[in-house]
Each structure stands twice: as C-alpha cells, then as structure tokens.
Design a protein around this nucleic acid. Structure first.
Lengths: 234, 234
DNA sequence: ATCAAATTATGCTGTATAGCATGCAAAATT
DNA sequence: AATTTTGCATGCTATACAGCATAATTTGAT
C-alpha cells in the first residue's frame, strides 16, 4: 500500500462524471458513511480471477487494466478503466467470483462501497439501477464488437483499433497528439490479441509510415484519419 | 408472417422460466395489456443491424441466432436465443440502434412489450431491475470468456466449445445425445470463428474419432468428457 | 418430375502470424 | 560502479488456417 497523497476520497462519489452523481444528497451522504479507501502501486494486483468481490470499487485515481488468462497463461485485456469508473462491478452484480484480474497501470486510489449499501441505494433509487443497466448494455455491445474485430481483423487493423481505443478512453496529453497512457509493448499486444514481437514490429511499421511516432512508451498519433482507415480496412 | 399455431401468447409473461415471473400479478396484467405478437418463418430476419428497437421482444417459441457482420461481411454469431428469453434487449436498454442482426433458426413466435411499459414496470419493481442487471452482468462475463476462447483456442478447441455451448443452451433430444438444434455447417462455423470448410472438416474428424456422430445436421455427442478435454486443451 | 440452387465434402496452395533465437538498450538492484 | 533484470528490436522458421477449386449430395422451386 502506498502513501496517502492528499486525495479527497469523497470526490469519487460527488464527481459529476460518476454514475453516482444522479443520487440525492441524502443517498450520497449514506454512501460516504459506508466506504473505505485503498491505495495501489503501479503493477499491484487489485483483484484476481477467483476472488470474491467485496463491494463496489470506484477507481478514484490512476489507470487499471482488466484481463483474463487464456490458453497457456496468455493474457487478454478485456477492459481499461479510468477515473471515476467502477471496477470489479461485473462480478459483484452477477453474484459471481471475479472472472478477470485487475492490475494497476499507474499508482491508484480506489474507494470500496460495501455491497449491502450499494444494493440498498439501488433499491431506493430506480434511476441508479437504470443507469447501471444502460452501462452494462453499452459495455456488452462494446464487448461484442471487440470479439468481432479481435477475431477477424488482421494485425495492422487490430493494432490501429487498439490505439484509437486508448486515445478515446484516455485522451491526449497537452500536445493533442500523445496518447495519455503509457503501456508496455506486452500490454499493447495483450490488448490487441497478438504477440509482443508483432506489437513491436507493427508499431515500428506504423512509425515508419508516419502514422504514429514512438518514443519509448510514448505514442503520438500523427495521422488519425490514416489510422482509422487502417482500422476500418481490417 | 406465418400462420398462428395455437400459441397462448400470455404464456411468455407468465412462464416461470422468464425473468418476468418475479413480477406481481398486477404488473403482469399491465404488461399483458401492452404487448403484440409476431410470427417469423425459419430464415426470416427479426431485426437488423441499424434498426431501432421498438420494445422488449420475448422469444416465446423457436430458436434465434444473433450475429454481427465483420470484415468482408463475415458473420460472427454472438448469441443464441431460446424460449422464454429476451431478444434485442441490449440495444433497447443501451438506448442505441441494434448493433447485431437476429434471424430465426426455426419458425418463431415473439411477443413485443412496448418500451414505455417495460420501463414503467422496471421503475415500479426494483427486483426486475436487479434481475436484469444480473442477467447483463452474466452475459458480459460470457462475452469476455468467449472473446478469449475465440481468439486463443485452436480450431478443434473452438469447435468443441461451441458444441458444448449448444448442448448447454438447447439441451439434448429424448435420446440424451442429439443436440437439440439443427444448424447449417456455415452457422456452426460462424459461431466458432472459422470457415465453413474447416467446420465441416473438423466435425468429420470428431466423428472419425468417435467423439460425436453426424447425420446431416443432427449432431450426437458420444463422448462428452473427451469433447470437454478437447475444449479445455485449447 | 425436373431443374436450379444451396449445402456438404475433400483436396491443394498460399500466407499471416506464432514461436523462437539473438542482440542491444535501459532500468533497477546490489 | 558493477551486475542483473527487464523491455525493445529484428530476423528466421514452422504451421495453423484461410482461400479457392471441384465434385457430390441434398434441398427447394416450378
């Protein structure tokens, strides 16, 4: 566990970007009485395949990858979380143990609201349930789309799509070009269903073609339309 | 549209297997006042990618495949529906147009409850919302698992898994061996992320090995443990 | 009953990509 | 500062699978 870094934990409930922002002040107050905070260093495991979900985790700070282990321990990243989003909620609401593992990509702060409190507020506020249903429905659509592209697109298309996905999820740095997340080549590969070698190779090719530029883990998108064309082409 | 075949449409709301069975008699009555029925012949399109969802469709009779079109029009089946289950509900609850196409595998009966009525009952009955959330959460877990196996397993493993999936979804005929759904080799291929040729070839191999027997579209599982081993092996 | 179209079956060829090996650079640990 | 570890880069080889062609069989339409 890392040191507290002046994080105001109540923010993850009040934050207007959160699904919880639709709650009444009273309901928010109730949740604030029933959460704890946890800190995770870069690389730390937040939860593991097989673990029992303890409550609703809200990622307050940092970035998290959620992946499944496949054939021969090969990782497939199924989701990338950002603040202020839920993590581990799928297993919680399915009343299952976790079927994926969450690892901090950066130092993270996470708030955990215990299960009973969440369920109580959901029963009192239909809007929250409706929002959660909508989130799940969108996420499921995304997952279906991902299944198709990961199975059908060629390496270039898959990588291009992943880069666009990362850009859409985390946005750009101030230069409006650098994707605001720094992944190892291995993680890029595990996101895109390819070997690390091929991720490295294909990133280099993209750089040679002037579509992106690479500086270590810093990836800058130089020609987004072309990247989109590569993704669409498949 | 096909002829009515003496189907008692109210059954799809009263059916104890349905998520709707948890509703109060009053709520059920309300839904029964607000649905219409539709009949589809084998091969007919129920809804198409891009269509706007009109309401909550309950598949009352028949079997339905839901698929997405990928690179070069190649189909990927993302779901197989059976009675009494919802169809097209993902798009409805995501407030999106359909992102997949549904086609009747057999002659089908479907009840459509209009959107407003569904949403009203959901707001009045938190248990229904909770059930729907749980369904979505399970389905999302299934989709993630599927993504991994479709990308990572080899052809034999993917086909074995698909056959087990079909058996788990539709069950056996009275002989306790024949999978209770009759798909074309093309559909089997589109479910398992492979070409039709390879589906045919691999089914033949399984038959030669005595794991299954094939008689046209009738597939009988002769050695389930072995089939599971092939699936787990990858 | 006849013909056309779709489905099933099988074989051959090409290629995308995995899998490995090797070298180098950067970072972390001592 | 020295050494170990980790990550990046690139080339070579093997192979799983797609893609196509052809033929046989079944299904559906007229």
């Amino acid at each position: 566990m890392m040191q507290e870094r002046n994080y105001n934990a109540d923010d993850c409930i009040d934050n207007p970007k959160s699904v919880l922002s639709i709650l009444t002040p009273k309901e928010k107050e109730f949740l604030k009485q029933n959460y704890t905070c946890a800190f995770y260093k870069k690389g730390e495991i937040i939860f593991k395949e097989g673990d029992k979900p303890l409550g609703l985790m809200i990622l307050a700070e940092g970035k998290v990858k959620i992946f499944k282990e496949g054939v021969g321990g090969r990782e497939q990243i199924v989701r990338m979380a950002k603040p202020v989003g839920f993590i581990g909620y799928r297993a919680l609401f399915a009343e299952e143990n976790h079927t994926a593992t969450a690892v901090a990509i950066e130092d993270c702060v996470s708030c955990i609201v215990d299960k009973e409190s969440v369920f109580r507020v959901m029963r009192s506020n239909a809007d929250l349930s409706m929002s959660i249903i909508q989130s799940f429905a969108s996420e499921l659509g995304f997952s279906h789309a991902r299944t198709v592209t990961l199975t059908q697109k060629h390496i270039r298309g898959r990588l291009a799509e992943s880069l666009i996905f990362l850009k859409d999820t985390y946005g750009y740095e101030d230069d409006n070009k650098t994707i605001k997340i720094y992944l190892s080549r291995e993680d890029v590969a595990n996101l895109s269903n390819m070997t690390t070698s091929n991720a490295i190779r294909t990133l280099s090719t993209f750089a040679q073609e002037g579509v992106i530029s690479i500086d270590g883990r810093k990836i800058r998108i130089l020609d987004l339309p072309k990247l989109e064309r590569i993704s669409d082409l498949g």
